[in-house]
Amino acid sequence: MINDMSPDDIDGEYKEATLILYGNITRKVFFSDREIPYPDGKLIVSRTDLDGIITHVNKSFVDMSGYEEAELIGMPHSILRHPDMPSVAFKDLWDTVHGSRKWQGFVKNLRKDGAYYWVKATVIPNIRKGKIVGYTSVRRKPSRTKVDESIRLYSSLTE
């Protein structure tokens, strides 16, 4: 259901990695060293169903990810998964929201064109009539110091 990335979409030089996603699905990704700065004053918003399948994205999400809205809706949220992100971060995310709590963390996301962008993400469960019906994530601009700290931390966790 989630396709490999295509080298044709990548801007400039790139490396290759194979991610093993939830349910043992593998995905070949191509990524470059190009960072896209987080746009000032904006929030990047998405919602998923209970399984992390994207159901809603806002315009900033579309602009930053490099995908069209139609390419995102119905896809697992791991479509943005960058190989530099340690899987423990996402395990912590899921454990936290399954427990009806709020998760916050710094995330490096992979764009369709192979470039990346850092966000500070907050994920919460959407509770309706006492039941979790989905999840919402809202990202804001992270500070450079926090990004640098996260780079150090995550590289020690992915080695």
Binding site: R47, I124, T136, V138
Partner: peptide, 15 residues
């Protein structure tokens, strides 16, 4: 309204 409240929830500081 619920969506906006969820959104505000992600933005309030404290926890």
């Amino acid at each position: 309204m619920e969506f906006m409240i969820d959104l505000m929830d992600t933005l309030v500081t404290g926890d």
